[in-house]
């Protein structure tokens, strides 16, 4: 069983992702301001832009993954596998009612006795 992430870890992950989003965007903007003096530095900037935008996307995807894991935590967090939940209780009560009806039919109305005739 993978351990449930603690709220601290979740907060940390959220904060990292947010700061990443900001930071990467800043970096992209920063490249725009520098004045390039040669083709080489422009090539480096190109590459850098690529890296930064990919990282930006990655941070966004991580947030999506985070929401998914949180949904799972919610789904399983209050999973009461032992005992009866509401549907079980309803079903059991219905079964009891049915059984009582059948018992009545057998005992009072003589279903078995009639069968012998």
């Amino acid at each position: 069983m993978e351990s449930q992430p603690s709220s601290k870890a979740l907060h940390y992950r959220i904060n990292t992702n947010i700061s990443q989003l900001l930071q990467r965007f800043e970096n992209i903007m920063a490249t725009a301001t520098t004045e390039s003096t040669s083709h080489t530095s422009t090539a480096v900037e190109t590459y850098q832009l690529d890296v930064e935008s990919t990282a930006l996307v990655r941070a966004a995807e991580d947030i999506l993954a985070l929401t998914r894991s949180m949904k799972e935590t919610w789904l399983f967090g209050n999973l009461n596998t032992l005992g009866e939940d509401e549907a079980d209780v309803k079903r059991r009560e219905k079964l009891e009612n049915d059984a009582t009806a059948i018992q009545k039919a057998i005992e009072d109305e003589g279903v078995l006795k009639a069968a012998a005739k």
């Binding site: 992209i28 725009a32 422009t42 190109t46 832009l49 690529d50």
Partner: peptide, 9 residues
């Protein structure tokens, strides 16, 4: 070149 890159990004 830079314009192109920004567009691509």
């Amino acid at each position: 070149w830079r314009m192109q890159n920004f567009n691509a990004a």
